[in-house]
Write a protein that binds this DNA or RNA. Structure first.
Lengths: 293, 293
DNA sequence: CTCGGTTACGAACGACGTAACCATA
DNA sequence: TATGGTTACGTCGTTCGTAACCGAG
């Protein structure tokens, strides 16, 4: 199970085509065919269905391993490379949409003021992508958010050693239409809402999967999915009755047509964490200090 | 970063010798030397210190990645292999010492009674080894224990997809000498004991690292380490004042010279979980059912 | 007939072993 | 000097690309 073969396998499944994967990888179609054949003979099973191209059952199982495997391989390489680098004149922040708050912008401003020559970049990513960029060295530090019990850590993908530190915990709120019967309540119990119509906004609001996990419930089925990162767009969907969404309380103010009700039970918080490598650059250390100070 | 090279690297670091690693792997010493040289040139850093042989800083960092990487590689192969197998005439249980309880032996008896031809094997392993054996297919199912907040899952190494299910949660108790000033108490607060003398019995009692994590404390420093799996041996050490140990309450009865006091705060439990692959054999399913029924 | 995956084959490359080499305790 | 890691080099296996092949739509 050479990583090259795994990489080819992943590309084939993603492109649903041998030739497209070959092009993407800079191989010939023949080489890709040979790679897949080698993998299949090594594992003793067919992994890819041809015409149309797609994973077999074993192939799908392999995919669950291949991606984290390749990620960790890249993470290991990046980790070693970081030990040798000497140029801390860059600070790239990968942050989840809901973490781009005044606290972050102020901290960034502070870092830029104290180290003027620093090239600062901010990129908004999904939670897992943000962590992945830190692991592979594409970003220096990530800010991710999610829901958890108070002072519990967030469940993050484990692809290698990294340092995580909580920077904020805010009450959790439910965003609902202003004219919703529950909109006047002071507080709500989450279990009562498991069967409601939910908006799944994985990039922006609390992912329903996390909600399901912390609430230990099978409910919270997505009714409508919102793939954007714009909170006004989410609010518009909520206001027009497409579903409910869980958000950090502070970011629910001033959203027209909606009301926010604090979630009282179970005791949950919206949590923001910084994630950075074990060997942070001085700029990362400065940012983390500014976020905490 | 070919897995072969990583495997060689790990062997070299473990054996603290190129030639010993070569022997262990079935290579010549020369090949091992070439493997290390290839890795070092690939990553652009020295990884191994020679004479005496040992990891450099970068090498230690690589070790943190190499082991989980190789484990997951084996897990992936085992996972695919399981999909093809047809012989469920074997049931190998890897269990942590404290999980070998009457509940388990009764469940095993039940499984053996209903499927007489089944070859049952029980092996006692450390927590991580037990999980590793399940991932690599060396065992069919693992029973592991640890400490956690009530109905929180145990922190297990994430080396691939697996199913975990809680089978028991018992109150946590502190084992101390019978004549200890706290021995008469009905209940104890854990934070008050962070600075006590602790026995670290990672194979048997609650690992101090887990205790430190759930109690969010820097204390619980190991005073004496006990590497055995025999609870009478641990009790003897506790009775003679070598330190305290946290154990599940039910297993503290009848230990001479010791007293057990329930840990009241924070609210923690000793938790036992079954771990098995996503594609359990029928025997595994039967065992899990018996454990829950 | 065409598109796309497979197979055959040769050239280039890489990996391993043998053996000579060299550095350190 | 002996032990043990390194280097040189020859052999063999592997991997890739070219090109012929073949099966499904």
């Amino acid at each position: 199970m050479d990583p090259h073969l795994l990489r080819t396998f992943v590309a084939v499944i993603e492109h649903r085509s041998f030739s497209a994967a070959a092009q993407g990888l800079g191989y010939t179609q023949s080489a890709v065919s040979q790679h897949i054949a080698a993998l299949e003979s090594d594992l003793g099973t067919q992994l890819v269905e041809r015409r149309p191209v797609g994973p077999t059952v074993a192939g799908e199982r392999l995919m669950e391993h291949a991606r984290p495997l390749l990620l960790r391989l890249d993470a290991a390489r990046a980790d070693i490379a970081r030990l040798q680098q000497v140029r801390p004149a860059r600070l790239t922040v990968a942050c989840a949409p809901a973490t781009l708050t005044p606290a972050l912008t102020k901290a960034l401003a502070h870092v830029r003021a104290t180290t003027p020559a620093l090239a600062v970049a901010v990129r908004v990513r999904g939670r897992d992508d943000a962590v992945r960029e830190v692991l592979t060295g594409a970003a220096d530090v990530a800010l991710v958010d999610g829901v958890a019990a108070p002072s519990d850590p967030l469940p993050l993908p484990d692809a290698g050693p990294m340092t995580t530190l909580a920077v904020a915990e805010e009450p959790l709120a439910l965003l609902l239409p202003a004219d919703h019967p529950l909109a006047r309540r002071r507080s709500l119990r989450l279990p009562d809402l498991a069967d409601a119509h939910w908006l799944d906004a994985p990039e922006l609001a609390v992912p329903l999967g996390q909600l399901r996990a912390v609430a230990r419930s099978d409910g919270f089925a997505p009714h409508v999915t919102y793939d954007g990162t714009d909170i006004r767009g989410l609010a518009a969907l909520v206001a027009s009755g497409h579903g409910l969404a869980a958000l950090p309380l502070p970011s629910t103010t001033g959203l027209p047509g909606t009301a926010a009700v604090r979630i009282g039970a179970p005791r949950l918080v919206h949590r923001t964490e910084v994630v950075h490598p074990r060997t942070p650059t001085s700029a990362v250390r400065a940012l983390v200090a500014a976020l905490n100070g």
